[in-house]
Design a protein around this nucleic acid. Structure first.
Lengths: 253, 253
DNA sequence: CTAGTTCTGCGTATGGTCTACGCATAACAG
DNA sequence: CTGTTATGCGTAGACCATACGCAGAACTAG
């Protein structure tokens, strides 16, 4: 007999489907000794402690007192595990915007929430993302962001684009600051000395005649000071939100 | 006797220094059979053909008809090779803005130039960047971007922040579109069918009561259509430049 | 109660990665 | 000619993901 056809196109990995609460366990066979959430939690624990590079299948298995190959009964591949790690690593979305917030306050809060997550779990930035979000909590974040733009003059497509713009900005900013942190740790330099050292290095390398504008920036001492990363974050975010505001005004006519 | 002290702080890898034209070859010993540029070119060729994942030391060596370990006489590590690959992969910077361009036209051109490079060499996005740019051509790009903002009311630090904002945006946008391309190739789906398939998948997964805003986006058909990626790129870029413009106006006022 | 089915846990093995180390040799300086 | 120094590169070690297959557990059908 013909199975009920699944016309939904792309096939979801089994572990992702179970994250959505679909697909119950078949009643046959021995009872599982582990669970997908337990594995993912262990992997997240490893990443929190020793970084994403330390997350290998054998290391995660050791964390659980299990054999390496046992994990493959629960996740189809390491990439699948990584996807699930991202989902729980981000954690639950910050929730819908407060009623008294306008769109700008809401999105600012939303951006800061992601900023905070990425500051605390910088390994999330190192996970090679392999497609648009399909896990429950990731879509939860998206939902909360969209709600901030409810009641604006923007079209649905524009709302999506704005969210993409902001989340991309947050990720990018977090990547840069985490690189400075990791670089200073690798070089054994004090983090506050990292940017000044970089400035001196560039000053030594460049020829002022070939790089006049860059030379001017260096002369202004921009790279030498160790400014508050939060200020830098706020600067870019405000620029983007200004741009969004201009669009909203224009749409309002 | 005391060597001439190098008070410049961080030590540059040897291969990077030679990319700046410093450090000439010592006259002793057998003549080298290869050169750093030849190795980097071969690595770039491999990445262009088969992606960054195909770039292993042995594969690059095979490309050159050399033994794997021979490469380590020229580059200190694979990471160093990757850094040099990024430098030549981006290629020479697009050049200073045309005299008739105002800052906005100049930055637009600048952003499109990077966009174009990343579209053609999407492996650049997969290179884990490990710090601020220190190679000649990378700093050349920075120089050209800074020149676009010459004559504006912005401070030197603000110019730098604006550049970071834009280059981050371009990278992010390129990452998203290349993920769609790679995802569709991996799934054997036509690229134009990728976003519609994603839309159907999300529609199947979410509960409209839990995800009302997302559901509304889907109902509007936003994810189903396969819109021109360039339009999406222009949208975000214009938002950011609007934000920069607002700042310039404010500083001028 | 028994036989069949299906699932779990996991040992083994393959083929890939980067790179530390050390040796033979080639080219130069004095 | 001798000593110094650099190169080319073979060997080997320490990882990695994962394909495959087997033993046994837990359920269902008869």
């Amino acid at each position: 007999m013909a199975a009920k056809t699944d016309d939904s196109g792309p096939v979801l990995p089994a572990s992702i489907e179970s994250a959505w609460g679909l697909r119950e366990r078949p009643p046959k066979g021995p009872r599982p000794g582990m669970s997908v959430p337990a594995i993912v939690d262990a992997a997240v624990r490893v990443a929190d402690a020793d970084g994403l590079a330390a997350v290998s299948m054998s290391r995660v298995a050791k964390e659980l007192g299990a054999a390496t190959m046992a994990l493959y009964r629960y996740v189809g591949s390491k990439d699948e595990l990584l996807m699930l790690m991202v989902d729980t690593g981000y954690g639950p979305s910050p929730g819908p915007p407060a009623p008294e917030d306008d769109w700008r306050a809401g999105l600012t809060r939303w951006a800061w929430a992601e900023h905070e997550v990425l500051r605390q779990r910088s390994w999330l930035l190192h996970v090679p993302i392999s497609g648009p979000p399909i896990t429950p909590q990731q879509l939860g974040w998206m939902e909360d962001g969209l709600r901030c733009l409810d009641g604006t003059t923007l079209g649905e497509g524009e709302k999506m684009s704005v969210l993409l713009l902001i989340t991309g900005y947050v990720r990018n900013e977090a990547t840069l600051t985490s690189q400075i942190a990791e670089g200073s740790r690798a070089a054994g330099v004090d983090p506050s000395e990292m940017m000044p050292a970089y400035g001196r290095l560039v000053a030594r390398l460049i020829d002022p005649a070939r790089f006049p504008a860059l030379h001017r920036v260096l002369s202004a001492g921009v790279l030498y000071q160790d400014d508050d990363p939060d200020d830098e974050f706020v600067f870019g975010l405000d620029r983007i939100l200004d741009g969004v505001e201009a669009l909203i005004q224009r749409r309002a006519g």
